[in-house]
Design a protein around this nucleic acid. Sequence first.
DNA 1: CATGAATGAGATTTCATTCAT
DNA 2: TATGAATGAAATCTCATTCAT
Lengths: 207, 207, 207, 207
Amino acid sequence: MFAKFLNLNPEKQDRILNAALKEFAQKGYQNASTNEIVKEAEISKGLLFHYFKNKKDLYLFLHNHFLDIFMEEIHKKINWSEKDIFERYRDIARLKFEVYQKYPEMFNFIKNVFTEDAAEVKVDMDRRKQEILSKGYKDLFGDIDTSKFKEGIDVERAINIIFWTMEGFSNRYHNKLDALQLELINIDELIAEMEFYSEVLRQGFYK
Amino acid sequence: MFAKFLNLNPEKQDRILNAALKEFAQKGYQNASTNEIVKEAEISKGLLFHYFKNKKDLYLFLHNHFLDIFMEEIHKKINWSEKDIFERYRDIARLKFEVYQKYPEMFNFIKNVFTEDAAEVKVDMDRRKQEILSKGYKDLFGDIDTSKFKEGIDVERAINIIFWTMEGFSNRYHNKLDALQLELINIDELIAEMEFYSEVLRQGFYK
Amino acid sequence: MFAKFLNLNPEKQDRILNAALKEFAQKGYQNASTNEIVKEAEISKGLLFHYFKNKKDLYLFLHNHFLDIFMEEIHKKINWSEKDIFERYRDIARLKFEVYQKYPEMFNFIKNVFTEDAAEVKVDMDRRKQEILSKGYKDLFGDIDTSKFKEGIDVERAINIIFWTMEGFSNRYHNKLDALQLELINIDELIAEMEFYSEVLRQGFYK
Amino acid sequence: MFAKFLNLNPEKQDRILNAALKEFAQKGYQNASTNEIVKEAEISKGLLFHYFKNKKDLYLFLHNHFLDIFMEEIHKKINWSEKDIFERYRDIARLKFEVYQKYPEMFNFIKNVFTEDAAEVKVDMDRRKQEILSKGYKDLFGDIDTSKFKEGIDVERAINIIFWTMEGFSNRYHNKLDALQLELINIDELIAEMEFYSEVLRQGFYK
DNA sequence: CATGAATGAGATTTCATTCAT
DNA sequence: TATGAATGAAATCTCATTCAT
C-alpha cells in the first residue's frame, strides 16, 4: 500500500511527513490543506497523490506511523520492573510530557484521534480509539501489583479511578499551559503536583 | 451587538437558531455550511449576515445562548438542599443525560467547545472552556458538605478526584454508546453503575 | 430545479447557454471544460454552480432545452396535412438541414446524445435516446397514409426500411461534408438526391 | 514507426495491446487512462512512452491492429462463391455478431471509430471512417450478382438501401441489448428477424 | 531496455461574504 | 428588513508526459 512511499529517499520522506504532521496537528483533518503540505514539503502537487491516493490515506498513514514511534519510545524507556501503579504512572507521565516538549506537533496530532470528528475519518479513528484505550491500557498497566490495595475494595474500579484522575490532572495541566500560551513545561513541578494526587489516592485505596 | 437579532420575531429567531444549532452540532464549526443553515431556516443568505457579521459570530452567539439555557435548566432542577457531593453528582449526571436524550443536538453542540479545533474559534473556545470549568465548578459544587471527609485528607484534591472520576465514567459511557451506535440511554442502569464508583470513593475518602 | 436560472435576465441566460452549448458540442461531455464555459460566458466560476449543481445537471438541462426548441420548430413548420411518408420525410429533412445550417452547434449537441459515452451521463442519455426514437417516431410518422403500400407487403418493416434509408443517406451526406470540411450545404441538391432514393423505394413498396 | 514495439517479445506485446484495448473500449479515448493501461499490462509508465510517443499514437496503432485482425477474419470465413446480396449479408451479419460475442471489447473499440469525438483523434478517425466505408464496401459487396434486380431499378441506390437497412437493423438490435443490459445474443433469432427484412426488400427489388 | 519519481497545469466544486435592489 | 445573484480564492485530485538512473 505505502511501499512506494517507504522506498523513497529518507530525507524527502521526512520532509513530507513533517509537513503533513504540522498541518494536520495545527488544523485538524478537515482544515488541513494538501496545498500547504506540498508547499512546505517542497514537492509538487502530483507527487503527494502519487504516494497517497488521497488525503484520508495520508492522514491514516501518518497516524499509524507516529503512534508506532511513540509506543516504541514508551516501551523502551519505562521501568517495567516497578509494579506499583503510582510509580508506573509517574514514569509514563514524565515520558509523555518529555515527548510533548520534544515533539509537540506529533503529540498533538496523535492526541487528535480523540477529538477528530471529520466525518470522513471518524469511523477509522473511533475504531483506533477503542484499540488504543483497551490494548494500550493492558500493555501499560496489565502487570501492576494489586496486593497493595485494601481488603474489600473493588480493585478494578479503583484502578479506573486512578486512571481518570491522572488523565484529568494531565488535561488540566495542558489546558492551563495552553491558556497561558506557554510552551515550556516544568516537568518536575508537574510530577510533584501529581504526587499529591497519588498520595490522596494511596491514602484512600492502599492498605 | 446582537440586539438586531433579538428584536426579530421569535418564530424566525427560533428557525435560525435551530437550523444553525443542527448544522454546527452535526458537522463542527469548519464543516458547517452557512448555505445549509439559510436553506434550513428558510431565510436568505443576506439576512443571516445582516444579523451576524460572520460565521464566527453566529457560532459564538449560539454557544452563549444554548449554554445559558442549559445552565438555567440545571439551576432549576437540582435539589440544592442536598449537600452530599455524591448525591449532588448523581442529580447532575441524571439531568445531563436527560438533557442529552431530549436535545442531543444542543448537547453535542455545547460539548464541542471541548473538542473544537478550527483555528478561527479555538482561542475563544479555549477561554470559554476555562470559564465553564472553574465557574461551573464553583456554581455546582461550591456548597457541598466537606465535613464528611476523613480527617487528614486533602479535601480539595479529593473533590477533584471525584470530579474526574465522574467525568471519566460519563465519557466512557458516551463512547460506548457511540461505538454501539445506540441512541437510547438506560439512565437508571447508568446511575446504578455510577453508584458503584461513588461507593469506592466513599470508602476511600469518607469517615 | 432550474427555476433560479430561468428567473435570470435573459441576456445572461443566453450567454451561459450559448457558451455551454458551444463547449459541449465541440468537445463532448467529458472533454468540455466548465472553466472555458464561464470564461466564454463572462461569469464567475461560482455562478455557474449557483445555477446548476454540477456539470452533469448543466448538460442535461441544455439537452432538454435545445431539444425542446428543436421539436417546437419542427412542429410549427411541418405541413401536417401531407400524409405521404416520402413527402413528410422530405419536409423533415429540409427542416433538419436548415436548422443545421443556422445552428450547427445546437444540432451537433443534440445529435451527440447518440454518441455520448461518458459514463456519468450515459444512462440518462440512453434513456433519452429510447424516448426520442420511439416517441419522436410516433409524433412524426404516426399519421401517414399506409393505404399507398402494395398489398401483401409488411408495412411496418417497410416503414423501418424507409426510415433507415433516410437516416443512412443523411449521415452519409453529413460525413461527406465533414470530410470536405465544408459547412455550407446545398439543400436543394441534397433534397434532389434524396428524391432518387424515395423513387426507388416507391417503386418497390407502393402500389 | 512502431518497429520498436513489434520487435518486443510477443507475450509482452499482447499484455500491452490487451490492456490498452480494454481501457479504450470501456472508456473511450479521452477517458482512458494511461495509468490504468500500464498497471493492467504490468509495465512501467516510461516503457509505454518508449514504444508509443503519446496516447494518440497508441490509440491509432491499436485501431489499425485490431481492424486488420477483424478484416482478416472476415475474408477467411465468408463464403465468397455465394453472390446473392442477402445471403452475403446474412453471412457477414452472423460473423459480426459472432465476433462481438467472442471479443466484445475488440468489437466495441473498433466500432468507436464512428462515435469518437475527442478533438485530438477526431480528424484521423473521420478519415478512417471514410476509408472503411468505401473500401470495406467494395471489398465485401463488389462482386454480388446484380442480375436478380428488377429491370428499371436503380441498382446502385437499391444496394445502398439494403446496406442502410441492415445497418439500421443491427444497430437497433444492439441498442435493444444495451438497454436490456443483456450481453448474450441469440444469433439465430437475430438472423431470422433479419430475414424478414430481406424478404420485404426482395419483394420490392428482385424480379 | 526499463524504471517510476516527478511535474504542474487543469479539472470540478464549495464557500463565506458582499452589495445593488 | 430582506433578497439572492455574484464573487473568486481555495479545496482535492488526475493526467499525459519527461528524464535521470
